[in-house]
Design a protein around this nucleic acid. Structure first.
Length: 461
RNA sequence: GGCGACGUAGCCAAGUGGCAAGGCAGCGGUCUGCAAAACCGCAAUUCAUCGGUUCGAAUCCGAUCGUCGCCUCCA
């Protein structure tokens, strides 16, 4: 039985999809105005692993992830560029959106994050947003003041149910200043009156949508008024998801999502990683230093809801750990053994599944994988390659479920190969010093050598 | 001020009532020309601290200390 922790109820619950065998899953995506940092990567890698596990269990996952492509941050960036360059704002905005959407995909591809079923963009769903806002006004949830439309939090009785906060406390102690037009300081914008591009026509005049409404529109458009999983980083619980719930449920009178899943933060130097604070590592810079599989392993090595501190030391440890798995699998394969997975569920497989069924406890599942690695290494050492291959198949298949893709043994440049051969000659003539110099040379080119009874094997670092 | 999370070995990390998984690093050994990888063995008498409940607590309750977060854009 699969159990998931639901932020809405604050406890683990049995996961029962609305439609048998199918899962509708919405993950809040990024605002495409800058490079992704490791915090973004953590969230998307975690939900990718969760999605893969659901698929492994035989569920068909409809995975929807949006891009926010209309937002003050993007517009401000375009304004800055326009001051320098002079091109039109809408063109600059398009350029920024295109650039960072591409950047997002480039990073996620390296981290082996599967493509979503669809990637809606906010600007492609403006009519849907306007429809929702119209209905919210009709139902008394929204009110228009001079071309702006706000959502009245007081009108939605259940406001605060996700983040467990009390409206009265909020309005008293809040740092939000009461804006003239708002009836309550906690009220938020559904539609913002604007005179400058980008803007759209609406029943309330020209303007653009507020931030939260896009996710309501896109999730309902692609997954229906009620779906299974709504996910995102912990920082979205309030106000973003709270507001989404108010809008969507006010609109439809149905529960938006059955399960709310949130990832814990990534910290750097003991502080939350974030763009605005300047405290972050971009995904790109980390991938320049560490193999993607090591970065992915690092991000999955702590339970998805728990805070994870990033450092060179931790990434290094993750890298070494993945090398252990990779070496184990590659040793079995070098013996010419195909990894045939046994049809019978093995006790290891059962153990891993029960860990994963407990709110996706990947750290426990990895512990089991490492035990298997030890077993395989012993079998390999004892030349029991048939049994080694069976266990190795389990290792490989679970690494696949987690999306851990080890670099296949690649081709090696002829130049390096000849150095290896040359060293072999020296070794045969027992010219150890000469051989060691070549080994050092190869190491500096990222090749380690292992002299085994069956000859020298090379491995890339 | 309100709400919440976390504190387990040098580092990372599971475990949430019945003898403390696993990884990285370390130490000793086997193997090796030396290494590397791998293997064998060692390493927390103890889970921030102090009390309480219990036959039994890392796990439940209370207090204290410490760290972080949300309450404003944020994955």
């Amino acid at each position: 039985m699969l159990k998931v922790y639901n932020t809405m109820t604050g406890r683990k619950e049995e996961f029962l999809p609305l439609k048998r065998g199918k899962v509708g899953m919405y993950v809040c995506g990024v605002t495409v105005y800058d490079e992704c940092h490791l915090g973004h990567a953590r969230t998307y890698v975690a939900f990718d692993a969760i999605r893969r596990y659901l698929e492994y269990k035989g569920l068909e996952v409809n995975y929807v992830q949006n891009f926010t492509d209309v937002d003050d941050k993007i517009i401000n960036k375009a304004r800055e560029e326009s001051r320098k360059g002079g091109a039109d704002l809408p063109i600059l905005i398009k350029g920024i959106v295109k650039k960072y959407t591409g950047e997002y995909f480039a990073c996620m591809d390296k981290l082996n994050v599967k493509k979503a079923t669809c990637y809606p963009k906010a600007t492609e769903c403006i009519p849907e947003m306007i429809e929702i806002i119209k209905r919210l006004i009709e139902k008394g949830y929204g009110y228009e003041v001079d071309g702006n439309v706000h959502f009245s939090v007081k009108s939605f009785n259940e406001y605060g149910k996700l983040s467990r906060r009390n409206l009265d406390e909020c309005s008293h102690k809040t740092r939000v200043a009461l804006e003239e037009q708002k009836r309550n300081p906690m009220d938020f914008a559904l539609w913002k009156k604007r005179k400058e591009e980008p803007l759209w026509d609406s029943p309330w005049g020209k303007g653009r949508p507020g931030w939260h409404i896009e996710c309501s529109a896109m999730s309902m458009k692609y997954l229906g008024e009620s779906f299974d999983i709504h996910a995102g980083g912990e920082d979205l619980i309030f106000p973003h998801h709270e507001n989404e719930i108010a809008q969507s449920e006010g609109y439809s009178n149905k529960n938006l999502a059955r399960y709310w899943l949130h990832t814990g933060f990534v910290t750097l130097r003991q502080e939350k990683m974030s763009k605005s604070s300047g405290n972050f590592f971009t995904v790109r810079e980390v991938l320049d230093k560490y193999p993607p599989v090591a970065v992915r392993f690092f991000l999955l090595s702590t339970h998805y809801r728990k805070l994870i501190e990033v450092s060179e030391e931790h990434l290094e440890a993750a890298k070494r750990a993945t090398e252990r798995i990779a070496a184990c699998l590659s040793n079995v394969k070098k013996k010419g053994m195909g990894l045939s997975r046994s049809m019978q569920p093995t006790s290891n497989r059962i153990a891993i599944e029960s860990a994963m069924d407990d709110d996706f406890n990947i750290p426990v599942a990895m512990g089991i994988i490492f035990k298997l690695v030890s077993n395989v290494n012993v079998l390999t050492k004892n030349e029991d390659f048939v049994r080694a291959a069976v266990l190795a198949a389990d290792i490989e298949s679970f690494c696949n479920v987690l999306g851990l893709k080890f670099r296949a043994d690649e081709e090696i440049e002829e130049e390096l190969l000849s150095l290896i051969r040359e060293r072999e000659q020296f070794r045969q003539r027992k010219l150890w010093e000469e051989a060691d110099v070549l080994r050092q040379t190869l190491l500096s080119k990222g090749i380690t050598l292992e002299d085994t009874p069956r000859g020298t094997q090379w491995r890339r670092l």
